[in-house]
Each structure stands twice: as structure tokens, then as C-alpha cells.
């Protein structure tokens, strides 16, 4: 069971890494094509501004999955030396911190989906990108949900970073 999950997890991480790299590379490419098109050929992409936003969202929420699993967030380590001297307190603190991370990412996922619902109801579209605006939000929400799952996986023995062979 855990082996299957781990396998699934490995495939998922690879897929997300590919997706986010493509999104980031797309950001560079779209901006360059837009500017060169405008400057050299008088033919900008028009929707470049909005497409860049969509790609940024994919890169951020796709990347959040891996960051959440590795619990790789910027923290302040000021009290770290003192905290490690109180092992019992530190364990409780660590559990509470994990719970807060889980809550925050869960709220993000829920309210991205709620926002998606609102835009869908209002039939909001982009200005230039021929796309209903809720569609990319559905992708962001899906990725944010995976970040919630990844936060859970971060504490499951066998799925934690460092456990098993695919902990890259």
C-alpha cells in the first residue's frame, strides 16, 4: 500500500516539476515573443499580460505542492537553539506548526475554489485572452488541494521526504 502511494507520489512530483518548469520557461518565452513581436514586427501577442498571469499561477501553485511536502517555507530560526533544549515543548510546537500549515493551505484551496465558483457564476472572462476566467482558477485550486495532500504526506512515515528511494 505505502509502496504504491510512494510510487504514485514520485510520479506526481516528477509531473509537477515538469509542469512548473514549463510554466516558468513559458513566462520567459511569452514575454520575449511579445516584446520582440511588438518592437520588430508591430505584432505583439495582445493577451501576453494575461497569459503571463495564468502561467505564474501554475508555477506558484504547482511549486507549492513540492514546497509543502518538504515543508520548505521561509521561517525565522531566532529561537531555534533554545527550542531544541526543550524537547517535549519542541515536539508539541512542531505539531502545532504543522497543523497551522495544514489549515492555511486548506483555506487557500477552499477559497480559490469558492472564487472560481463566483467567477463562473458571473461569467467573467479575460480582457484579451479568449478564456473564461474560472478555468485557470480551477487549475490553481486543484494544485492547491494537492499542496494540502502533500502537507499531510509530509508527516506520514514512508511518504515523508527522506523516507524511501524517491525522495528527490
Amino acid at each position: 500500500m505505502i509502496r504504491l502511494l510512494r510510487r504514485l507520489h514520485g510520479v506526481l512530483q516528477e509531473a509537477l516539476l515538469l509542469l512548473t518548469r514549463l510554466a516558468l520557461f513559458g513566462l520567459v518565452g511569452i514575454t520575449a515573443v511579445d516584446v520582440v513581436g511588438r518592437v520588430a514586427f508591430g505584432a505583439p501577442l495582445g493577451f501576453a499580460y494575461e497569459l503571463v498571469g495564468v502561467l505564474l499561477g501554475v508555477a506558484v501553485y504547482g511549486g507549492l505542492v513540492r514546497a509543502a511536502w518538504r515543508r520548505d517555507h521561509i521561517r525565522i530560526d531566532l529561537l531555534q537553539p533554545w527550542l531544541s533544549r526543550l524537547p517535549a515543548f519542541d515536539r508539541a510546537r512542531e505539531a502545532a506548526v504543522w497543523l497551522l500549515e495544514l489549515s492555511f493551505f486548506t483555506l487557500l484551496a477552499i477559497y480559490i475554489f469558492r472564487q472560481m465558483g463566483a467567477l463562473m457564476r458571473w461569467r467573467e472572462t479575460f480582457l484579451f485572452l479568449p478564456l473564461e476566467k474560472w478555468l485557470p482558477l480551477a487549475v490553481f485550486g486543484g494544485l492547491a488541494s494537492l499542496a494540502v495532500v502533500a502537507t499531510l504526506a509530509a508527516v506520514v512515515p514512508g511518504l515523508r521526504p527522506g523516507d524511501g528511494e524517491r525522495a528527490s
Binding site: P44, G46, Y49, E50
Partner: peptide, 26 residues
């Protein structure tokens, strides 16, 4: 024709684009 124009609404953007101007968003 060929002029780069900032457009405030999609309607103006589509019309200007159709007549050969280059609508720029911003």
C-alpha cells in the same frame, strides 16, 4: 495601420485590431 495603441476595453481593441492597428493592453 500599424500604430501601437493602448486600448481600455475589449470592444475598442477588437475594432482597432480589425482595421490594422496594434492594440496594446496595460
Amino acid at each position: 495601420k500599424g500604430k501601437k495603441l493602448r486600448v481600455p476595453t475589449p470592444v475598442v481593441g477588437r475594432v482597432l485590431g480589425k482595421i490594422g492597428a496594434v492594440p496594446v493592453s496595460g
